[in-house]
Computed example of a mutant assay.
Amino acid sequence: MLEAWQRIFPGEEVVGRELLARWSQPHRRYHTLDHLALMLAVIDEHAGLADDADAVRLAAWFHDAVYEVFAQDNEERSAALAVRNLEALGFSQARAEEVARLVRLTAGHAVAPGDRNGGLLADADLAILASGKPEYDRYAAAVREEYAAVPDEVFRPGRAGILRKLADLPELYRVVPARAEWSARARANLAAEIRTLLGAP
């Protein structure tokens, strides 16, 4: 993974290794290096759809760099971390702020029309929803593990509500060419998990 970081910052190891350590924290079960790797793969495959593909890649690196399970400000703290580090690495303030904007966008995945950078980042972040059933089931199980301290009677309706908000988005995916196919698979996965969470047949 360090090689992926160094494709943007050749030879830079200090910040790259700090980010890898953050993504490898033991309390993480879904928000891990595997999630980051999937996002980067989607971004690399569709880099031509962004206005600044490296800004989107860096937003992926930083978007869950701060991740505390019950915190409400993970994205804001991750955005601030991005600005500090990127400006220290020579990024202009404007470009660092674009990365920070993208990091904040992952809090709710609200993408404005014409936001190509935001669209690609959101598509990459939500790509797991469109995976095959075995991968999706592993994702759902990993999320449950991250919230192991929450009892089932609280977790199940709470998680179902979050999934409903995603399912109710007018567009789950914005820019990837296969967005129609991804959306169909994702909505089927979301519906199946909601039924399981609520004990519906």
Rank of each mutant, 00 (worst) to 15 (best):
E135H: 06
E135D: 14
E135V: 12
Y136C: 02
D137K: 12
D137E: 15
R138Y: 05
Y139V: 05
A140G: 06
A141Y: 00
A141F: 00
A142V: 03
A142F: 01
V143D: 04
V143T: 10
V143C: 08
R144P: 04
R144Y: 01
E145P: 00
E146N: 08
E146Q: 09
E146M: 11
E146F: 07
Y147C: 11
A148F: 13
A148K: 11
A149M: 07
V150L: 15
V150Q: 10
V150I: 15
D152Y: 03
E153M: 12
E153F: 15
E153N: 12
V154S: 05
V154M: 12
F155D: 07
R156E: 14
R156H: 13
P157Q: 12
P157S: 12
G158H: 08
G158Q: 11
G158A: 11
R159I: 12
G161A: 13
L163A: 10
R164Y: 05
R164S: 09
R164I: 12
K165R: 15
K165Y: 01
L166Y: 08
L166I: 14
A167E: 09
D168G: 12
D168M: 05
D168S: 12
D168K: 08
P170N: 07
P170M: 05
E171Y: 06
L172W: 01
L172C: 07
Y173N: 04
V175F: 02
V176K: 02
P177Y: 04
P177L: 11
P177R: 06
R179M: 06
R179P: 04
A180E: 15
A180L: 11
